[in-house]
Amino acid sequence: MISRNSKSFSLSCRVNGSELEREIPSSRSLLDFIREDLGLKGTKEGCGEGECGACMVLVDGLAVNSCLMMAVQLQGKELVTIEGIKGKDGGLHSLQKTFLAEGAVQCGFCTPGLIIASEALLRRKPDATLEDIKLELTGNLCRCTGYEKVLSAVEKARRK
C-alpha cells in the first residue's frame, strides 16, 4: 500500500510527451499544478467548478476539467495541455489552423478548452458529425463568438 502521510506527494507522470517527477502538495488541484507549478498558462481558470471548460486538458487522452481533479490523481498518467497540441511538423495543429481561418477566436480565453475538447472528440471519432461536435462542446462556454464559427472550425479540421 502506498501512503503519503504528509503534506506532499511524489508525483510521477508524463506531461506533453516528457517524463516528469515532482514533489507536490497533496492538496494541489490539477489546475494549480499546471499553471503555478509547471508554468503552463495556456490552461485557464474560469468558473473553478467544472462548468465553463476553460481549464480543460487531456488525461490519458480523455478531456477533463482540471479544476475538478487533484494533481495526485495524475499519478502514472499522461497529461496533455494546450501547449502539447501541435501539428506533425511541430507547428500549428489542424484545429488551431481552422480556428484561425474561421475567425473562431475573439477574446481567446475559452479557446484552449475548445481546442482540447475538439481534439479529444476527433481522436475518438474522426468522422464526428455536427451533432457529435455540438454534444462534445456542451461543456465549453464561449461568451464572444456565438459558437457558429467554432463549430465550423471543428468541422473543417475533421476533414484534414
Partner: peptide
C-alpha cells in the same frame, strides 16, 4: 486533502477507511 492513500486491495482500502474514521474518504473520480 492532507493524505493520499493508494491501497492494493479492497481489504486494505476498508482497513484504511476504518482507521481514518470521519476524515477518510473513498476517492474514484474525485
Amino acid at each position: 486533502l492532507c493524505e493520499f492513500i493508494r491501497p492494493a486491495t479492497l481489504a486494505q482500502a476498508r482497513a484504511s477507511l476504518r482507521k481514518l474514521g470521519p476524515k477518510g474518504m473513498p476517492l474514484a473520480g474525485g
